[in-house]
Every structure is written in C-alpha cells, then in structure tokens.
Amino acid sequence: MERTYFPVLLLLGFAAFNAVAMLALSHLTMRPRPTPVKQTPYESGIPPLGDARERFSVKFYMVAVLFIIFDIETVFMIPWGAHYRELSCAVPLVAGSCPAGQVSFFGLGEMLVFIAILLVGFIYVWKKGALQWD
C-alpha cells in the first residue's frame, strides 16, 4: 500500500515545494512600491463602484446541485463498467472470457434500470427549465 501511493505523496510534496519556492522567490526579489490607485480593484480605469461580492444568479447554485447528482451517477457507473465482463456472464469467467452459451443479461439489465430512473430525473430537470440559461 505505501509503495503504491508513495510516489504520489512524493510528487505532491515536490510540486508544493516548487509552488512555494516560486511564490517566495518572486516575493523576495520584488521592490514593493504600492500606491492607493495601484491597489484599487481594476474596473477598466474608472473608480470602482460598490463591492464585488454582491448577489449573483441562482443558476450557478443550480448547476452545482445538478452536478452532484449526475457526477454521483458517473461514479456508480465506473465499477459497473470495469466489471461488465463478469456481470454479463452467468458463471465465473474461464481464463478471462465467458464460456459459450453462458452470456447473461444481468449486467446490462441492471444498468438499464438505473439509467431509466435517472433519465426520468433528467427529463424533469430539463422540462422545469433548470438547464435554460437565458
């Protein structure tokens, strides 16, 4: 286990070290000369009006919620996809393939039910106008 994930941790540390080194190097070599105008938020040259953190369209929240639903669905599909060969065989695989005449509809049938339920939700969301952006 530690051998499997050790390189990832090593690289994570290496990349993080690089990021910090870049930020630090840039910070150490610069000569700060701040002025009030330089520090105002950029709004195409006019004095900024109000705060940027105002309310924004609810659409963005909706997309986030829909994303959760459909992404979970994708996550459920991944193990199914990776084991489709075993799932569509009525008996255990022989040397990685299914013996003749033992092909089963089980794997596909299960997924069709799953997709059908999800499709109902998708059509509902579409008809409700959650995917409409104007």
């Binding site: 610069m30 701040p34 330089k38 938020p41 705060d51």
Partner: peptide, 12 residues
C-alpha cells in the same frame, strides 16, 4: 521578468 516584477495586492 515575472520573477522580478512587482506584485500588487488589491487593498480589498
């Protein structure tokens, strides 16, 4: 150039 340049921090 990017290393040597001044970093700006918006006041807000």
């Amino acid at each position: 150039k990017n290393i040597m340049k001044e970093e700006t921090y918006p006041s807000a």
